[in-house]
């Protein structure tokens, strides 16, 4: 018995389908969802959502939002979400460099926060883009 996973953002329905397990970036740490999970509503952090279906591993970049789990149905309401194939690695790399350079210059707190957020976003994107490969059980998923 698998899980049904829906990932929706205000702009579109990104993913819907059957998976075996889901690993999400919860606000209070990584959170693994298996079938028969207790009903749960939680806030999500910026991070990588990984879903496994057989030997396949799907990765999504999630930029904030919340998740609802009810009777083997996982609904992720993300503010912004991307699939690995959609991510432009070069652009993300570029954004990371820009943010890092900005942070080195010790900007005022306001800008620093914005740069930190940009850095975080680009890192999540890069991680998702590089992660899209067949699932190998001997490797621990990085968190």
């Amino acid at each position: 018995m698998g899980l049904r996973l829906d990932i929706v953002t205000p702009e579109r329905e990104l993913f819907t389908g059957e998976v075996d397990t889901v690993l999400v970036p919860g606000a209070e740490g990584q959170l693994g969802i298996l079938p028969q999970h207790a009903p749960l509503i939680t806030v999500l952090d910026e991070g990588v959502l990984t879903a496994r279906r057989g030997a396949e591993s799907l990765a999504f970049a999630i930029h904030g939002g919340y998740m609802q789990v009810l009777s083997d149905h996982v609904i992720v309401l993300a503010d912004v979400a991307e699939q690995a194939e959609e991510i432009d690695v070069e652009r993300a790399e570029e954004a990371r460099r820009r943010a890092e350079e900005l942070l080195k210059k010790q900007p005022p707190p306001e800008e620093q926060r914005a740069a930190m957020a940009a850095l975080q976003r680009s890192l999540v994107r890069l991680r998702v883009a590089r992660r899209q490969r067949p699932y190998r059980p001997e490797r621990e998923p990085e968190s």
Binding site: P10, E28, A38, P39, V43, Y66, L70
Partner: peptide, 26 residues
């Protein structure tokens, strides 16, 4: 809605604080 006892993480208030503004924006 089916009645379900949810676990709220971090808490109901925090979740409402995140959901409601987002819904308004929507």
């Amino acid at each position: 809605l089916g009645v379900a006892e949810y676990i709220y993480e971090p808490g109901k208030a925090e979740i409402m604080n995140a959901v409601l503004p987002r819904f308004t924006e929507l």
